[in-house]
Deep mutational scan, measured.
Amino acid sequence: RHRTIFTDEQLEALENLFQETKYPDVGTREQLARKVHLREEKVEVWFKNRRAKWRR
């Protein structure tokens, strides 16, 4: 597996949602994934990693 490289637009959308909710539900993740052309799984893992970074 290779590392996903997120575009600035994707990161902006992910960060904006993170400010709203640290734990978006699957529907919200799917909606964002469609909007920025990512797989929902990638969005889910990004949030998991972003929460870990936020806790540190």
Rank of each mutant, 00 (worst) to 15 (best):
E41D: 13
L14H: 00
E9S: 13
W54I: 08
A52P: 01
A52G: 11
P24F: 02
N16C: 11
R34D: 12
R39A: 15
T7C: 03
Q31S: 13
V45F: 07
D25Q: 06
W46P: 02
K42D: 15
K48V: 10
E44C: 10
K48A: 13
A52H: 04
Y23L: 01
D8H: 04
E12K: 12
L11M: 02
R51C: 04
W54Y: 08
H37R: 07
P24R: 02
E44M: 09
F47T: 02
E15R: 00
R50T: 07
E12T: 12
Q19A: 07
W54R: 05
E44K: 14
T28A: 14
E40L: 13
Q31F: 03
Q10V: 06
E44R: 12
E40M: 14
D8Y: 10
N16I: 14
E41N: 11
F47V: 04
P24L: 01
P24Q: 02
G27E: 09
G27K: 13
R39P: 15
V36G: 02
R51Q: 05
P24W: 03
E30L: 11
E41W: 09
W46M: 00
Y23N: 04
T4Y: 08
Q19F: 04
E9L: 08
D8N: 13
T7V: 01
N16A: 15
V43L: 06
W54P: 07
Q31H: 10
K53S: 11
V43T: 03
R50L: 04
V36C: 15
T21F: 09
A13P: 06
W54T: 11
F47W: 03
F6A: 06
E44L: 11
T7Q: 05
D25T: 07
R29C: 08
K53H: 10
D25R: 01
E20K: 15
N49E: 15
E30V: 11
Y23M: 01
V26D: 09
E15S: 01
E9W: 03
R34Q: 15
Q19Y: 05
K35Q: 05
L11F: 15
R1V: 10
E40P: 14
E41M: 00
E15P: 02
T7W: 00
K35C: 04
T21A: 06
F18W: 10
E41Q: 04
V26E: 10
E12N: 05
E9P: 12
E30N: 08
H2G: 13
V36W: 15
W46H: 00
K42L: 15
D25K: 03
N49F: 08
R34P: 00
W54A: 12
V43W: 00
K22V: 08
N49V: 11
K35S: 12
L38W: 00
F18E: 01
F6W: 10
L32S: 00
K53R: 11
E40Q: 09
E9A: 04
R29A: 05
F47P: 01
R3V: 06
Y23W: 11
V36D: 06
F18Y: 07
L14P: 14
R29H: 06
R55Q: 14
R50C: 06
T21I: 11
D8V: 08
W54N: 03
R51P: 04
E12A: 12
T4W: 08
T4S: 09
L11A: 15
K53C: 09
K42G: 13
D25Y: 03
K35F: 03
L14S: 01
E20Y: 05
E40N: 10
L17H: 04
V26S: 11
R39L: 13
K53Y: 04
F6Y: 14
Q19I: 08
T28I: 11
V43E: 06
F6D: 05
E20W: 05
P24T: 00
T7I: 07
R1S: 13
Y23H: 05
R55G: 09
V26I: 15
A13L: 15
